[in-house]
């Protein structure tokens, strides 16, 4: 996890763009964490929140989710 996030942190501190392999690792981490989040939450609540509320009420980041 730290390995995956380290390029982003480096990017914030002024390094260049991460490589495509690093972005792919981020994507894999994100997918794994999403299943963890889903295991942790109630199914109905998760669907309501992830599929309806989050895309609708978040104007910045998750617009196309």
């Amino acid at each position: 996890m730290a390995d995956a996030l380290r390029p982003v942190e480096a990017m914030h501190y002024g390094d260049g763009e991460p490589t495509s392999e690093q972005v792919e690792a981020l994507s894999v981490l994100r997918t794994a964490l999403e299943f963890a989040v889903r295991r942790r939450m109630n199914g109905v609540v998760y669907v309501l929140w992830r599929r309806v509320l989050l895309p609708r009420f978040s104007f910045r980041t998750y617009r196309y989710a």
């Binding site: 982003v8 763009e17 972005v23 981020l26 964490l33 999403e34 989040v37 980041t61």
Partner: peptide, 20 residues
């Protein structure tokens, strides 16, 4: 850009960690 893609994933992972 790849930078924006990484940024998007990063924000999403932060959100997931907040949930956990």
């Amino acid at each position: 850009s790849t930078r924006r893609q990484a940024e998007h994933y990063y924000q999403d992972i932060l959100r997931q960690l907040r949930c956990l």
